[in-house]
Design a protein around this nucleic acid. Structure first.
Lengths: 250, 250
DNA sequence: GCTGTTGTGTTTACGGTATATACAGTTGGT
DNA sequence: ACCAACTGTATATACCGTAAACACAACAGC
C-alpha cells in the first residue's frame, strides 16, 4: 500500500484535523468560554439530532444543513460546536454507545457474559443500521463510551484466564460475528429483498453448472430460516473453540 | 419516506433502479447493439479504472469525472455504460473478485480449505481497503464472481457433513472474522496510528478507574503484536468450535 | 449510393454536498 | 463603558451525481 492515504469511508482523510482537539471533543474535555453569548446548542445535542435523522432516513440524510435545520439554525452554526462532518459522525457513534451493557448478571460466567455483550451489541446495530457504514473505515478516535464497551468485553473474557492478547483476539472474533449478522439484516425491505432473491435465483439457475456447491446448498435450504438464532449459533461455535483453548484440549 | 428506505451507504437508495438491468450488467448479459458508433469503453474497463483509482487514493477519489478523465472523456460518457455510480461500485467489487481462490490443494480437508479461502479473502481486503466500505451496506446484487466465492466457501465446508443452513452460518462466521481483521489493518499509516495510540493511551490513563479491565489488558500487552497471526488464531477457534459440532461433542 | 434509426460522446444546467471567509450581534471581564 | 471573545449568519467556492438537449457516427434497409 506504499504511501499512506488510501482511506475508504466518505469522511475525513487528507484533512489532518487536530487529533487532540477531536479527542477533547469526544471526551467532553474542552473548557468552555466565559465570554460571549450563551451557546444555543452543544455537540451532544447536535449529535443526538443527527442520530435521530440517521435512524429515520439513513446516514445519507445526515447533512450539515439538515441537522442544522432541526434546530432552526444555519448550517454554518454547527461548525461552532463540531470541527466538521467526520467528527460529527464520531460523536454520533459515541452517542449511540451511551448505554453500556450491564454484564453483572453474568458475573464470573464468561460464556454468559460474552453472550450478553454480543447480544447488546447486535441490538445496537439493529437499532442504528447506519452505524455499520459509519464504522466501516478504521476510526482513529475512541470516545469514553466506546472504550467502556471495549472494557466490558475484556472484563467478560477475563475469567477465561487467557492472556490479554488472546482475549483481544476473541473480542475481534465476536465483533466480527456481530457485524456480519448486523449487515445481513440491515435495511431489510421484505418486498425488495424478495424481488432480488427471485432474480438472483433465476440467474443462478441459468448458470447452475458454474456454482455446483452453492446450487446444492440452496436446494438444501441453506438460506431458509431454520428457527435457530444465528447469533446463538455463531457464539456457540466461537465459545466452544475458546473453551477448547482454555481447557488446553489438543 | 414512511416505510422502507433507511439505507446507510453513500450510494443508491431512493432511486429504484431496474434490478433486472443491474443484474444483466453484472452478468454481462446485455445484448450489444449493431447500429451506431463503436463504443470506446466498456463497463469492465470503466470498473477497472475506478478500482485503480480507489486502490491508489481511496473510494472518495472515485467520482464519475475522475474516472472519466482516466479515459479522456466527459463524465456523462460513463452513463452510456453504467446506470449510475452505485452500479459502478458494484462492478468494482465484482471486478476485484475476479480471481476466485483455488481450493483444490485442500481437497477434502475442510479445515485447510476454509483456511485457504479466508486467507485469500483477507488478502483481497488488504489489497483493496475500499472494498470494506463499499460492501458495508447490504448489497442486493450479486455478480458471478461474488457467487463463485460463495460457492467456493460452501464447497470447502461440504465435507463437514453439516446441514446447508449451518454451513452457511459458519460461512458468516468466517467472513465476519476476515472483515473484522481487515478493518483493523485498513489504511494503516504507522506514524498517524502511533500518534492516535499515544493520545488515546494518555486520555485512558487519566480515566483508568473507569476502565479497569481495559487498563489491565493494556498493561498485559493486549495490543502488542504477539507473533501469532490473528487470522490463524481466529480460524483455529472457529474451526475447533465447528469440529466440536461435527463430532457431536457436548 | 442514400436515408433514417440508433447509439455515441459533449455541453450545459440543476440541486445537492462540505466548508472557508467575512461579517454583525451579544455577552462578560475589566 | 469598553473591548475581547464568542455567537450565529450570509456569501462564496469547489466539488458531487445526474437530467436534458444536442451534434456526430455508423449500420440497416432501400
Amino acid at each position: 500500500m506504499a504511501g499512506r492515504n488510501a482511506r475508504s469511508g466518505k469522511e475525513q482523510q487528507d484533512k489532518p484535523r487536530d487529533p487532540q482537539a477531536v479527542l477533547a471533543l469526544l471526551w467532553g474535555e474542552q473548557e468552555q468560554p466565559t465570554r460571549g453569548p450563551k451557546p444555543t446548542l452543544s455537540p451532544q445535542r447536535i449529535a443526538a439530532a443527527a442520530v435521530e435523522l440517521a435512524d429515520a432516513q439513513g446516514l445519507d440524510a445526515v447533512s450539515m444543513s439538515k441537522v442544522a435545520a432541526e434546530f432552526g439554525v444555519s448550517a454554518m452554526a454547527l461548525y461552532r460546536y463540531v470541527p466538521g462532518k467526520a467528527e460529527l459522525v464520531e460523536l454520533m457513534i459515541e452517542s449511540v454507545l451511551a448505554e453500556v451493557p450491564d454484564l453483572s448478571a453474568a458475573e464470573g460466567d464468561w460464556r454468559a457474559a460474552t453472550r450478553l455483550w454480543a447480544r447488546r451489541c447486535l441490538d445496537l446495530y439493529r437499532a442504528h443500521p447506519w452505524a455499520l457504514a459509519a464504522t466501516a473505515m478504521r476510526r482513529q478516535a475512541m470516545g469514553p463510551h466506546q472504550l467502556r464497551w471495549l472494557d466490558a468485553a475484556h472484563a467478560a473474557l477475563e475469567p477465561t484466564g487467557l492472556p490479554a492478547a488472546q482475549r483481544h483476539q476473541v473480542f475481534v472474533l465476536v465483533v466480527g460475528l456481530v457485524r456480519s449478522l448486523a449487515q445481513q439484516t440491515a435495511d431489510f425491505d421484505a418486498d425488495q429483498d424478495r424481488e432480488w432473491n427471485r432474480l438472483t435465483a433465476e440467474v443462478l439457475r441459468r448458470h447452475a453448472d458454474r456454482f455446483p456447491a452453492l446450487t446444492r446448498a440452496i436446494a438444501e435450504g441453506a438460506f431458509e430460516p431454520d428457527g435457530t438464532d444465528p447469533l446463538d449459533f455463531g457464539l456457540d461455535r466461537i465459545l466452544d473453540g475458546v473453551e477448547a483453548l482454555v481447557a488446553g484440549r489438543p
